[in-house]
Simulated scan of single mutants.
Amino acid sequence: MDAQELINTVALAMRRGVKVAELRDTVYQHPTSTDAFNDVLATIVRADRPQTAHVPAVPPGSVGVASGRKGAAVTTASMTGKVALVTGATSGIGAATAETLAECGAHVLVAGRDRGRGGAVVEAIRQRGGTADFVAADLLDADSVRQLARQAVELGGGRVDILVNGAGIYPFGPTEQTPQSEFDAVYALNVKAPFYLVAELAPAMAERGSGAIVNVSTMAAAFGVSGMALYGSSKAAVNLLTKAWAAEYGPRGVRVNAVQPGPTQTEGTAGMREDLDTLASQAPAGRPATPREIAEAIAYLAGDAASFVHGVVLPVDGGRTAV
């Protein structure tokens, strides 16, 4: 079953009054490409929303409404001429972010470990008329992070204007059962990698007098969650780094902010559907997010529309941390 067939199935089910949770089950039973997966989920999400007037999409890079997805619209400024490096961009929120920034006109550098998946994201962007390149990176240590920064600058024609620190791992489990190797791996990727990427790229942004950095955190960094001590603490460090970097680089024209997602439906969390739904049920929105919804918030913080926004950790969690 391809994406369009899935969408048709969802539409028919909605007309028959099938619950949204059951529609999600239909999607998960028929996995497709990342892009198709997100399109179908977006169709389901729109079923829960009040109907609004449709605003036609405009070409990538245009000022105003900028989105290449069917039925989606976001007000954002043009990123034409800017180079954006997105880590963890081969799937999930990272892939959606790469696609969204490309639709806004940015030349996107898709960074990740999996060449096959990274190539698919790049190809999807190019097919829509965007500009993208894949950069292989494992981000296991400071040297590999610095190598990624050098490659990104080279591919970007001597500059990186936007950095999205999206790579991360999120093991859950009891504190007493956490091996040292896992602790070290989580802090290496979730904390050390963004630290050294900022160290490599932010000074040049500051020298040019402009730049935007967006870190991807989690709502588990805002309050205690059983089994998430390791993951939550690593992202709590990212939240503090966001504010420290805003103080350090903001006066020189570099805006540093973070998004703090709640439960999000991605390929990586497909096996956690019941847990996601349980977490999401505690928030006003009452459902998990799609990767695109998180990506739209990242695009906002990375764009000129957020020109007066510095040091913010923006909850994109359906209202969970607010209530």
Rank of each mutant, 00 (worst) to 15 (best):
A237C: 13
F223E: 08
T131W: 07
M228C: 10
M79G: 04
G211S: 10
A13V: 02
V108Y: 03
G268V: 03
V74A: 15
L201H: 07
F308Y: 14
R46H: 13
A111I: 06
A212W: 09
P203H: 10
G158D: 05
Y231T: 01
R16V: 02
A280E: 07
D143A: 15
A306I: 01
E207P: 02
V216E: 06
L230C: 03
M79C: 13
A280Y: 14
G130Q: 08
G286C: 05
K235T: 03
Q282H: 13
Y187P: 00
C104V: 04
L109N: 10
A66S: 13
A137S: 04
P263D: 06
R146A: 14
D114P: 02
G81Y: 09
A167F: 08
L230P: 02
V58L: 11
K243Y: 05
P315V: 01
V135C: 12
R255H: 11
E200R: 09
A188M: 01
A89N: 09
R159T: 08
Q151H: 12
A95P: 05
Q282G: 06
K192C: 01
V312T: 12
A152W: 03
A47Q: 11
S226Q: 09
Q4K: 15
S217I: 01
E5D: 13
A247K: 13
V20G: 08
L241A: 11
E176L: 09
G209E: 00
I169V: 12
Y300N: 03
T97L: 12
A11S: 14
G262P: 10
A11Y: 06
F308C: 07
A152P: 01
S307A: 15
P31R: 15
Q51K: 15
G262S: 06
E248F: 04
S210E: 09
A258R: 05
E5Q: 15
V164Q: 03
A53W: 10
D317P: 11
E176M: 12
A220R: 14
K70P: 09
E176H: 14
E293P: 09
N38A: 10
V198A: 12
S234M: 06
G119E: 00
L23C: 10
N8Y: 13
A237M: 03
I7Y: 04
T218A: 14
A72L: 11
A21C: 07
G17V: 02
W245L: 06
Q151D: 15
L155K: 15
A96E: 09
V259D: 11
A96P: 02
A73R: 08
V58E: 13
V316Y: 12
R16P: 00
Y300A: 08
N165S: 13
P174Q: 11
T266A: 05
A285N: 07
T278F: 15
A247R: 11
E176A: 07
Q151Y: 01
Y249W: 12
V186R: 02
A244D: 07
A36D: 14
A57S: 14
D2Q: 05
R252N: 07
T32D: 01
Q127I: 03
S78E: 14
E296N: 14
P288T: 08
G271I: 04
E22P: 04
R252V: 01
T266D: 01
A289I: 00
A221N: 00
M219C: 05
V153I: 13
V191G: 02
H310E: 06
V160A: 02
T218K: 06
F37Q: 04
L279I: 02
